[in-house]
Design a protein around this nucleic acid. Structure first.
Lengths: 223, 223
DNA sequence: ATCATTTTGTACTAACAGGTTAAAACATAT
DNA sequence: ATATGTTTTAACCTGTTAGTACAAAATGAT
């Protein structure tokens, strides 16, 4: 999608090589896991050589760690453009929930990297300060959204922003992460294209119902 | 916990050996994944030898598949004793949600096996008919619970049992599966022992609010 | 011209890891 | 006892894989 802007005319392109390696490595790690991915396979799919992987990233774990960071960075970038401040709190929360659900669904490689990292008990993410800083702002935004809704009297006063973020994440993440086992057991119906919208609406509804005061719900008259 | 009842006095004990292997293999696979686990390591931790693993399970994938089945079997066994039929629908759903949340938290090895299997796109669970049959009844029970609540006029009529099961699972699963990354980014607060009860209550509340008619909620007067 | 950085290429290695060979010990039925 | 199938032991084999050694060259900035 977003390729580098200033490609050098000469034959050297260190940044390009790095990015090429990272792109291929993301593909391979997210598909096969840390121990499942093969350095030789990654090397073969880049336009450079195995030697360069070690030159730039040291070892397999170093490469994996950089890929993990890159996955978070790439995904959190998109979330900035939501402009929730311009909407009233209910609209904003509805939009946020649907966006998160949709966005996770669009980024299976990211989801898989996070799954893999959790299998490893988060031992590589622990080395990364930047990932933490990348994600914190999401809570603050949600916090201020909640505060607005509480000031307006439409949201319950005892809702915790972190917990709500957790709930939205859970519903959105699981939809991608557990699709294989869940749909083997219970069928594909929830993942048909038409069901996607429905599910997304229901997730948002669940969140809004949880957060809203009863009066506000009754006023909006949904069930 | 449940060890074999009739241990033979002689030196041979095929069933015991099988179970011993499965127990150790579950430990190793759930900890390290399919490609991360080591047959030699598994063998070393059993009271038998590597050769016996191949004798009983064919190859690594065969062993993994049996471990996966065993994980589902073990976990689904506990869910039968809930006796939801004796409670009124609201109580029953509350209890089901809390139980699921708690139960997932008590069985991290199961959660990890499911995560790992999803990383493999469910290619091993696909071979197992039994796992499907183990899980289907859960939906039927939930379906009849919903029907009761709808008959009583306390639940909304347009709630889908499969979708609701999915939602409860998502909230309960994510709590275990993503603990490492989530708590690295946002802190440990949601996983403190005291927070467990709170979170569990909130998950149940979220589910009940989603499912209930507004009148029924107002009558119960919770916010 | 100098010099650090980046790239290429090949061959190698040492450990590892999944899987096998072959034969012995055991249990049981006849 | 002997025959027969099952379970267990111990040593062995082979392909794979992360990572390196070594050597040299192309490039770009100063």
């Amino acid at each position: 999608m977003e390729s580098r802007v200033n490609k050098p005319q000469g034959k050297r392109d260190p940044e390009g090589v790095r990015e090429d390696i990272l792109r291929v490595a993301m593909q391979e790690f997210s598909e096969n896991g840390l121990s499942g991915a093969r350095i030789d396979e990654i090397a073969a799919k880049t336009r450079t050589s195995k030697r360069m992987i070690y030159y730039y990233f040291g070892d397999k774990e170093g490469l994996y760690t950089r890929v993990l960071e890159e996955a978070y960075r790439h995904v959190r970038g998109d979330e900035a453009d939501l402009e929730l401040d311009t909407l009233d709190p209910i609209e904003a929360l509805d939009r946020l929930a649907r966006f998160t659900f949709h966005h996770h669904r669009q980024n299976p490689a990211f989801i898989r990297m996070v799954m893999i990292e959790n299998i490893h008990h988060g031992q590589y993410i622990e080395r990364s300060q930047s990932i933490r800083e990348l994600n914190r702002p999401a809570i603050e935004k949600l916090q201020s959204l909640l505060a607005r809704g509480q000031r307006d009297g439409v949201f319950r006063p005892d809702i915790d922003a972190l917990e709500l973020h957790w709930q939205i994440s859970a519903l959105s993440f699981f939809n991608v992460s557990n699709r294989a086992t869940f749909s083997h057991i219970f069928g594909q119906s929830l993942w048909a294209d038409e069901a996607h919208d429905t599910l997304s609406r229901h997730v948002a509804a669940m969140v809004l119902r949880y957060v809203s005061k009863l009066e506000a719900l009754a006023r909006r008259g949904d069930g």
